[in-house]
Write a protein that binds this DNA or RNA. Structure first.
Length: 619
RNA sequence: GCCGUCUUAGCUCAGUGGUAGAGCACUUCCAUGGUAAGGAAGGGGUCUCGGGUUCAAAUCCCGAAGACGGCUCCA
């Protein structure tokens, strides 16, 4: 989330609104303790602590907004001034703002607060930023003064359109050992129109919510008996999963991958060796055997795959060896983190591992990149690259030496540069503990980004498991691993894909491709439908027959609500002419008109669309 | 895990300190229907669960579970 000014004026507007909201809250609850109030995507927030006096809820928003509007109407100028740090601390004490006081004390002592801790922009740092802060800046509007670096708009009247959105808990300085404050979020835009558009986008997002569509389209369910974070896939949802996965597998087969199969549990020894146990043992589902041995559900697949590689001596001539495996992994996430399909306890990964020499890793990564691009081109989700690197300031979080990291990250950066020039971002601290990653962010139809595919270089696990090949000199040579997931987690990908398509799946993915609607149950109609079904069956099409006791209009509506790509009505006319007039789901049709065609022609066209994975039809 | 909100029929929701309602869905019947809802009748709920207050609790209080919005975490 960038807090840099995207638009010259929007940033100070939003930032000023944070101050205006704090002003309003101080008016309404004078004992409020303030945390920080930065600009975020689409708006701003302020962290407040009203103590035992009051717990904010959305019911308070109207009141706060009224008070904010008063401040806006008063058009108070924002006045900047500075104080020496010592005086600033006295100010915070006198103002009874302990959180501000803590920040100032940290500034005085350390010169800075770690960027992870706090939004650095929030602090009124004017000194060198290295070690000593001598002076901090303040902004004052009306009767409200706040420690702040700015910038702000000239006066409270110049802040555009805003709306308070929600209130939630947030730990002071983002640490779960700290007290929890209340974070009040506001959306803010330069004009009413933009604010309205943003709210409309949220409405649209609500309509497309995969949890809602998952139920309406009968794709997956959750059962309280099975538990939170454990989706159960219906027949329709399973078709969608399988069709997408089949495509990934197909692309991988072409890229030389072989499928392997592994058990879903293991002795803990495996993870002790891989390094996962030390780092993630609290997030593993553990199993005690009746003989008292400790096992764990697999939280990832790479360690298992290494054992297949390591089961016999490998020559450099055999490399690269490429394994693929779409399989579930299990992670004991904190209950509060679970949500829909985006975060679950059982994750289906379309996982792949390449075991190769260092000199081959680049080509392998590029091939996998090809696979990713082909897949995302077909599903229609544009990608953006993020190079995820380690954070040198926390070496304990990573396996391997700094030099090794530098080397491997350099190699990955090279690949990225070669392929997309400067068209990628770098993210410090987003690497896996065993190596850096090429992460791919998909942009959905509403413009939201989600992490999906990933290609990772891994030198840590080959070390841990002592994976080698015999080289030309007859010596053992350390190999490297390249990890790749195309959809990443099928669950999360499905959540993105369902929302991206609004559940309007293309023919090749649709759980039901054709719905056959009968007009009546004449013998001739029944016979016609039976023969139609038989032919569709032969072409492996997914269809259902709706011969229920309902009006034709009703049956069409039902098919439409289920977003079935093709609906064909069969009645007297069709029986006589032997031709169908297919009704095409609106988003699929290239043109408005639909011509009649023979049964054979129609079915073959649909079958062909399914095989060639087209997204539009000119039927 | 933490903070807050929510939980009434399969679904979407109304309701209220005096032992429950609608629409859709479902079942049956009538209608032989032509491209987004034909008509009628019927079945279905210990109002999430467990405690407490009360003559009386779905309603008020406490606790748990689940969902949602965030925080923290994310191999």
């Amino acid at each position: 989330m960038s807090s840099q000014p995207a638009d010259d004026n929007l940033y100070p507007m939003r930032h000023s609104l944070a101050h205006i909201m704090a002003t309003a809250i101080m008016h309404l609850w004078p004992g409020a303790k303030l945390g920080v109030g930065p600009v975020v995507e689409n708006g701003f927030y302020y962290d407040v602590d009203l103590g035992k006096d009051h717990t904010l809820s959305e019911d308070d928003f109207a009141k706060i907004e009224v008070e904010m509007k008063k401040v806006v109407a008063a058009d108070q100028p924002f006045e900047r001034f500075t104080k020496p740090i010592g005086e600033a601390i006295v100010w915070a004490k006198e103002a009874k703002q302990p959180y501000k006081e803590e920040l100032l004390n940290d500034l005085k002592r350390a010169g800075t607060t770690s960027a992870k801790d706090i939004h650095a922009d929030e602090l009124g740092i004017t000194a060198n930023g290295e070690s000593k802060v001598e002076e901090v800046s303040f902004y004052k509007n009306g009767d409200f003064t706040d420690l702040c670096r700015g910038p702000h708009v000239e006066s409270t009247g110049k802040v555009g359109a805003f709306k308070l959105m929600r209130v939630s808990g947030a730990y002071w300085r983002g640490k779960d050992s700290n007290p929890q404050m209340q974070r009040v979020y506001g959306a803010a835009f330069a004009t009413d129109k933009e604010l309205r558009q943003y709210l409309q986008m949220l409405e649209e997002a609500k309509k497309r919510d995969h949890r809602k569509l998952g139920q309406e389209l009968d794709l997956f369910i959750f059962s309280p008996l099975v538990g939170a974070g454990l989706p159960l896939w219906t027949p329709r949802g399973t078709v969608v999963r399988n069709k997408l996965n089949d495509f990934v597998q197909e692309l991988r087969d072409e890229a030389g991958f072989e499928e392997v199969t592994i058990p879903h549990i293991t002795k803990k020894d495996l993870y002790e060796k891989s390094g996962h146990w030390a780092k993630f043992k609290d997030e593993l589902f553990k199993i005690q055997t009746r003989e008292g041995h400790e096992y764990a559900m697999k939280p990832m697949n790479c360690p298992h795959h290494t054992q297949i590689y390591d089961s016999k001596p490998r020559s450099y001539r055999d490399l690269p060896i490429r394994y693929r495996d779409t399989t579930m992994v299990y992670r004991d996430e904190q209950s509060g983190e679970l949500g829909g399909l985006s975060r679950v306890l059982c994750i289906t990964q379309d996982d792949a591992h390449v075991f190769c020499r260092l000199s081959q890793a680049k080509d392998e990564a590029l091939h996998l990149w090809d696979v990713i691009e082909q897949f995302y081109a077909i599903v229609g989700i544009p990608l953006r690259l993020r190079l995820s690197l380690h954070d040198p300031s926390t070496p304990e979080a990573y396996a391997g030496s700094e030099e090794k990291w530098q080397e491997v990250e350099g190699a990955l950066r090279e690949i990225a540069k070669e392929r997309v020039g400067d068209d990628f971002t770098e993210a410090l601290g987003d690497a896996a503990f065993y190596g850096p990653k090429l992460d791919f962010l998909g942009r959905d139809a509403l413009g939201r980004e989600h992490q999906v595919a990933t290609v990772q270089f891994d030198f840590g696990q080959p070390e841990g498991f002592d994976l080698t090949c015999t080289n030309e000199e007859g010596e053992d040579e350390r190999i490297v691993m390249v990890h790749c997931a195309v959809m990443g987690s099928l669950e999360r990908f499905l959540s993105v894909y369902i929302e991206h398509t609004a559940g309007k799946f293309p023919v090749w993915v649709a759980p039901e491709q054709i719905r056959i609607v009968t007009v009546n149950d004449d013998v001739a109609t029944v016979k016609f439908v039976m023969s139609l079904a038989e032919q569709a069956e032969k072409l492996k099409l997914r269809f259902t027959i709706d011969n229920s006791n309902e009006s034709v209009g009703k049956k069409i509506r039902t098919a439409e609500l289920l977003k079935v790509p093709y609906t064909v009505v069969v009645g007297e006319k069709e029986v006589q002419t032997g031709e169908l007039t297919p009704r095409i789901r609106r988003d699929l049709a290239v043109s408005e008109q639909t011509a009649s065609r023979t049964v054979d022609e129609f079915l073959k066209t649909v079958a062909n669309e399914a095989v060639s994975r087209v997204s539009k039809t000119s039927l």
